[in-house]
């Protein structure tokens, strides 16, 4: 197992490098003078000149890439002109907020989605199946930003059960309870689509597995239906569900951008949108690289989980 994790970690290095190359390439598409683009139209000439020196903007592109990469490796993501603080500090602070939101949503979508999918498959064509299929259809069709606003209107404004936005009360002790109350609506809005996708996939994976020969073997042994579904079929279906959870993590992170904007959640997604609108490109560049690298790490976890479930995968 240790060998496998090591193998996956090492094979992630080129992927992360590839990410930096792609980000660098995209950012080099910016038309005009990069230093001005990075610092904004109102930057002082001294700052522009300094940045040109720091980033080696007078050098060829390949050299500039390696300078940037070297800086990244030493933890120097540059300085955000709009916030006037180091990019990395801002990112780590914001990313923790996103992690809370996305993490809770991912757990929600995995648990509810898989359970719904299994029940749906086990009761195929029954009323449970129909109800779940209907809910799933709505879940995967509603835009999370629209759902978020509807939730606010209903539960925060009309019913006044939950807070409208933010992560904590402005004047409060930052308690876990406060956080949980603020989390309910955005996490629901964020998890809706992913839950639908996971439920749908779990259902079809279960139906696929239930037709396999080894399920017939389990029944021939006299295993009760409950055991056939939860012990034999679900275990095998997990092999195709887990990778989808990895992909859904990407979708949840993506959806977080909208949900954070709607709910004023102080996460990295909202930061990126604001940075783009302010043309704070170092912040965008750093934020994208950082989050993508974290996502790669997460996918290694998914692969490791997969190898724990499926003995056929070996290093």
């Amino acid at each position: 197992m240790g060998r496998y994790i090591l193998y996956r970690l090492i094979s992630a290095v080129p992927v992360v490098l590839g990410i930096t190359v792609i980000v660098f390439f995209i950012m080099s598409l910016i038309p005009g003078d990069p230093a001005t683009a990075i610092l904004g139209a109102y930057a002082s000439p001294e700052n522009v000149a300094k940045l040109n020196r720091d980033l080696g903007l007078d050098r060829p592109m390949v050299a500039r890439y390696f300078i940037w990469l070297g800086n990244l490796l030493t933890g120097d993501f540059g300085r955000s002109f709009s916030l006037n603080r180091p990019v990395l500090d801002e990112i780590t602070e914001r990313f923790s907020a996103t992690l809370v939101l996305a993490g809770v949503s991912l757990v929600l979508c995995a648990v509810i989605g898989i359970a719904a999918g299994v029940v749906s498959a086990a009761r195929q064509f029954g009323w449970q199946d129909k109800a779940i299929t209907f809910a799933v259809l709505i879940g995967i069709s509603v835009p999370s930003f629209f759902l978020g606003m509807l939730l606010i209107l209903t539960f925060a404004v009309n019913l006044r059960w939950l807070p409208v936005s933010g992560m904590y009360e402005i004047y409060g002790g930052r308690t876990l309870w406060d956080l949980a109350r603020h989390l309910v609506l955005p996490a629901t809005a964020l998890a809706a689509v992913a839950t639908g996708v996971v439920a749908r996939l779990s259902r079809s994976a279960m139906l696929e597995v239930l037709r396999q020969d080894f399920i017939r073997t389990a029944r021939a042994k006299g295993v009760a239906e409950r055991g056939v579904i939860w012990r034999h079929a679900l275990r095998a279906a997990m092999v195709s569900i887990i990778p989808v959870l990895g992909i859904q993590a990407g979708f949840v992170l993506s959806g977080a951008v909208y949900v954070e904007v709607v709910f004023q959640w102080p996460g990295v997604g909202r930061m990126l949108v604001e940075a783009i609108l302010k043309r704070d490109l170092l912040l965008v560049q750093g934020g994208v690289t950082f989050v993508a690298a974290c996502y790669v790490l997460f996918n290694i976890l998914v692969d490791v989980a997969q190898s724990l479930i499926d003995p056929r995968i070996k290093a």
Binding site: P14, V15, V16, G18, I19, V21, I22, V23, I26, M27, S28, L29, I30, P31, A249, G250, F251, L253, S254, G255, V257, G269, L272, V273, A275, I276, L277, R279, L281, V284, Q285, V288, V291, A292, Y295, V296, N299
Partner: peptide, 24 residues
């Protein structure tokens, strides 16, 4: 491998980066 690289991004990050570079 190239496709894997692109898939290593949560999709909106890449879209945001592209829009950031090309402009809204």
């Amino acid at each position: 491998r190239l496709i894997d690289m692109i898939m290593a991004f949560p999709y909106i990050l890449l879209a945001l980066a592209i829009v950031a570079a090309l402009g809204p």
